[in-house]
Design a protein around this nucleic acid. Structure first.
Lengths: 241, 241
DNA sequence: CGAGCTGTTGAGGCTTCTCAAAGAAAGTGG
DNA sequence: CCACTTTCTTTGAGAAGCCTCAACAGCTCG
């Protein structure tokens, strides 16, 4: 449940060779969203590194440049709910009050852009970008509420796997392109993180995956690398169609 | 599960005496958020009236002026998840794409302000207001994800009831002011709507409420009017403390 | 190679759901 | 205004799904 919380923040301004990485990453991120110019600073985090905790003073606004980040909340008895999983281009740390309402931790090695609240407030294009991100965040959270409130364990795991199959599973889905309807997904998450995202236990996640293996819907190349043998079949297990 | 979907929209511009109501409501709403001037039109809905459906073209942006609105999503087999409950001042219908991602239905008789997407985009103060609403919406959805993913039926119902106890239950809570730590809450929701919000069945909601009655945490004045006999006691059942 | 994680599998229990029936409340028409 | 219908809510019994606890397997790393 609780991870070792290793603070291993690398500040590019303090590290001799981090700056080169910063500029190269910066360029590719600009290509994605054109917002990077707005961000004054960059930080590199290792996998499973803590970016901030729920309750910390909300001083910075972050954007994922590369890698992935999860946002989660804890109940006092240790129960954890992962509320969002973010990838490149996603913003986080936009606070309603004075403190962050969630904790943020990386899943993989991650580079984030950051800026102060002040800087964000003074940039119109940043405000526009933030609004766009917030709207799609709300939409994702709506979808996730359906998953948590109304879906079975099988449907949750199926929905989770479909997240990582590119251009399949949503209304734009064009169906299988080849005879073989396969796709390999890399989760970059432990069973505990998946369980805490899906509102299940690790045992249930494990059992459902084993069951899907038995039914030949998936095979496992590594613990966190799953080959979906039948994307359409998996999609129908999500409960969405 | 599925309600009768009665479209009984009252357009103030079409109704002889709706205009007077519009202006009076408009004034009080302005006092609340100063945004009403931005909204060009108003609409009155009866209790349990449909405002729009998931998948409808997202033509308007709405603000609750008075009353309350729920946003929900349906799975094809009829399972429903109520994802948000909104009150005066809350915005909804801000779309990420071309269509609404949720359905919107009133809980009580409700007056909404509305404006087109174009109008919203051309107003800076509106953009600012939207951003504020979206940020607190995201925060509420995080909290709700914890409820749906990690809380027991008792904790969910307790959390739900605490929503309606003013100035209690959050970090600003000042504790009971009198010897009697009571509060009367009016739900304005059917058991089905509550269940669909909490990710439970009506039977479970009913059983939990009965259990709370038995334990003298609450008494019922009417089906949807509940007297909380011990606010602090109820608060400790939420799992949050 | 053994220690320490992480993940898998099994057995049993608990919570919540499903199905069913009866009771309470609200709406309808005479 | 009252009987009737319809809808909503409560309660019970049994079933199902997921969780808890426990043991084992597999991978990683010193």
């Amino acid at each position: 449940m609780s991870q070792e919380r290793v603070f291993s923040v690398v500040d590019p301004y303090m590290q001799p060779n981090a700056r080169t990485m910063q500029t190269s990453e910066s360029a590719s991120a600009e290509a994605r969203n054109g917002m990077s110019r707005q961000f004054s600073r960059h930080k590199q985090f290792p996998a499973h590194g803590v970016i901030f905790f729920e309750g910390d003073p909300a001083s910075n606004i972050y954007e994922v440049a590369s890698g992935s980040v999860m946002l989660y909340k804890l109940l006092p008895d240790g129960r954890r709910q992962v509320v969002e999983i973010l990838g490149p281009g996603d913003l986080f740390g936009v606070p309603a009050g004075e403190v962050y309402d969630v904790s943020a931790e990386t899943l993989t090695e991650t580079l984030v852009h950051l800026m102060t609240r002040k800087e964000a407030e003074n940039s119109d294009s940043m405000q526009e970008h933030m609004k766009k991100c917030l709207v799609s965040q709300v939409q994702n959270l709506h979808e996730h509420a359906v998953l948590l409130g109304r879906k079975s364990a099988h449907e949750r795991v199926a929905s989770f796997l479909m997240r990582f199959v590119p251009s399949r599973g949503d209304f734009t889905c064009i169906g299988p392109q080849d005879d073989v309807d396969e796709s390999v997904v890399t989760l970059n998450m432990t069973r505990q993180e998946i369980a805490d995202f899906l509102g299940l236990t690790i045992e249930t996640v494990s059992r459902v995956l084993s069951d899907m293996k038995r039914r030949k819907v998936i095979t496992m190349e590594k613990q966190d690398r799953i080959r979906v043998m039948n994307v359409c079949g998996l999609c129908h297990l999500t409960g969405k169609y």
